[in-house]
């Protein structure tokens, strides 16, 4: 037990790992199907580390898409990660550049949602060391699970719909912890509805990016007006 690996960190990381293991296995099974070897997938899981991004990339590799169109699609799919660095920055602002650049590689929906919730908790301390350790632990679970899935292939049966829902349930839990006043609930639900409205036109998670930008800006403007009055 040290400042990185301790009970508090593992308590925060396990729900992500719990969700990543079956989802990673499913991702690895897909990789084997489209002819991506375990070593190649390990490199992809280490360097790209993106759940939905890797599923999309593997499907595109399987359907014979070109490199440029795959890279551009992944760029769009992962664009939303920019919000996570933006909202986590103030919590790690004191740390050096090396920490920040290493922390950045581990930014995905799950690690960021957990870190954000933990940094905001008042009853428990959450250090920047625990935050980066939680992220690397989750990433390690993802790498291991995807490679295992690629090795085992069809030998394991994974109900992808069910296992993906474990992470959705985790997000719903983390999301509800943010509901500290009615503006926050309204913004969350509003952004969700807007994302659905935009979904026919904005694919590859762009609906999430636009809905977040529009709703958080509106909410900040409206609540700012209230404060002045």
């Amino acid at each position: 037990m040290n400042r990185f690996i301790n009970i508090g960190m593992l308590k925060a990381a396990w729900p992500i790992c719990f969700g990543y293991i079956p989802l990673g296995l499913a991702c690895g099974i897909l990789a084997q199907k489209v002819g991506v070897s375990p070593v190649e997938l390990a490199v992809m899981s280490i360097m790209v580390f993106a759940g939905s991004g890797q599923f999309i990339a593997l499907a595109m590799i399987g359907s014979g898409s070109g490199i440029i169109s795959i890279v551009l699609t992944i760029m769009i799919v992962n664009l939303r990660h920019i919000f996570y660095g933006t909202m986590l920055n103030k919590y790690i602002a004191e740390r050096g550049m090396l920490y920040k650049l290493l922390f950045a590689q581990e930014i995905v929906d799950e690690t960021s949602a957990v870190n954000m919730t933990m940094f905001q908790r008042e009853d428990e301390e959450w250090t920047t060391d625990q935050a980066i350790a939680q992220s690397y632990t989750s990433h390690m679970a993802w790498i291991t699970a995807t490679v295992m899935g690629d090795i085992l292939g069809e030998a394991v049966y994974i109900d992808t719909a069910l296992v993906s829902y474990a992470l959705v349930a985790m997000f719903i839990g983390l999301w509800s912890f943010h509901f500290k006043n009615s503006w926050l609930v309204l913004a969350g639900v509003g952004s969700g509805v807007l994302a659905l409205v935009l979904s026919p036109w904005l694919t590859n998670m762009l609906n999430v990016v636009v809905a977040t930008l529009v709703v958080s800006t509106l909410a900040a403007a409206v609540t700012g007006e209230e404060e002045k009055e």
């Binding site: 939303r80 919000f83 996570y84 933006t86 909202m87 103030k90 929906d109 949602a113 954000m116 993906s164 959705v168 997000f171 719903i172 983390l174 999301w175 943010h178 509901f179 503006w183 926050l184 609930v185 913004a187 969350g188 639900v189 509003g190 952004s191 969700g192 509805v193 807007l194 994302a195 659905l196 979904s199 998670m205 609906n207 999430v208 809905a211 977040t212 709703v215 958080s216 800006t217 909410a219 900040a220 609540t223 700012g224």
Partner: peptide
């Protein structure tokens, strides 16, 4: 100040959009 206030709404907005997209789409 405005950026700080904007930031308080980013987490709930981004996770709301993500959750609605995975639940309803």
């Amino acid at each position: 100040k405005f950026f700080e206030r904007w930031l308080t709404y980013v987490p709930t907005s981004v996770f709301g959009a993500l959750i609605f997209s995975s639940v309803f789409l």
